[in-house]
Write a protein that binds this DNA or RNA. Structure first.
Lengths: 123, 123, 123, 123
DNA sequence: GTGGTCTAGACCACC
DNA sequence: GTGGTCTAGACCACA
């Protein structure tokens, strides 16, 4: 598990992103129970308050459900999760393409650069 | 001219990015003179100090040269500019790939999604 | 403690040098916590912004690490510190040799003069 | 001839230093006539006012003499020149040694580092 | 007029 | 309380 927190951006934002990714990528499957705030905080070496704040945000997004007595769990609506995954991905692509086009890259160049770099990473 | 500054990130960072792009896209051609700090600041409705900081960063990058008493100019070294363009592009690709992989997309999926969307944009 | 600031060079540069030296000479040991910007500024009778700028430079050099909400500390990487010490020393030697050569001293003369004077100091 | 002027320090200071060095190293021998301000300025690609200012400083130091009608010349007092050369050199060594000792280098280390670097330069 | 530096004072997000 | 950012306004050396 990552939990790589850098001091350049707010901790709680990074926690939101990382937990989001764990949900969307299936580390926490739909309907599964989430560890307690305390445990999550300890695992991420973070103040419980900070973890608390991150979970609240995820609840607002609808990815997490709070049960009054028995902790939190991932939403059971698998469709919703998949939809979120696609939506976020398309956003990333959109932003990426816009930035590259502003730099004067055309489609061909973008594709060739990205395939080149994707193979470097592979090593 | 852009100068659209949003309050979500430091202004000086956005200034750096926007001026960077003006240089890379030829709004300020290599070797040309840059308006004075005060003029640029006024135009962007920003405090001169903030603009100054942005320009200093661009100087560290090697895109801008400052002549102590007679203003600043864009570097004449076209190679320098091209290098900056590549560097920035690779940064964008890096960030993009990292985000997508965290969402659980593998190389093949990333490439197919991006080629799909790049053709939508084309229309 | 030094904090002798002369008006002939930018204050923030002198601050960088002096703090640098405190780190290299062990006044602030590796891993130790640094006083807050405000405290340091007050101690040096300097505006907090000026001190902040000095600390930012030290961070870029890798000598200092900043924890967004809990202050700054000296890097724990002793190698980093040693590298800085060498880098600065070589700079001094470079500047020194250049000055001497411009005065028309050749290698032999430089070495003999310096060995002579180094022994005077010894007394 | 050097005339390498960098934009990081006042031009006229650099001119003073470089002309000083030419005198002390014998490029302009004692008693010899100095080119006119205009010529010197043209050669250094500098505004005559700036060169003028540099020469005034050298005059104050006593290295240069102005003849009301026939330009300037180097002082004829060869002893004075040699004394200045030595004095300045010893100052450089002093400053250098002090800096190195502050960095924690002892005599042996200083000598070994300097002999090492002096040979690198030689290549 | 140009860039560079500094001060004073303020506000913000974060923990 | 911490660092980070921004504004406003000032002064300086330089050409």
């Amino acid at each position: 598990m990552p939990w790589d927190l850098k001091p350049d951006r707010p901790i709680y934002v990074q926690l939101v992103e990382q937990i989001e990714q764990m949900i969307l990528s299936g580390v926490f499957p739909p309907g599964s129970k989430l560890p307690s705030v305390r445990d999550l905080a300890k695992e991420a070496s973070v103040n419980p308050n900070t973890m608390q704040r991150a979970l609240s945000e995820l609840e607002e997004e609808g990815l997490i459900i709070t049960h009054r007595t028995s902790g939190r769990s991932i939403t059971e609506d698998a469709g919703m999760i998949e939809k979120a995954r696609i939506r976020i991905a398309r956003n990333h692509v959109d932003e990426f393409l816009e930035k590259m086009q502003k730099l004067g890259f055309d489609r061909k160049e973008i594709l060739s650069l990205i395939t080149e770099m994707i193979q470097e990473v592979e090593k």
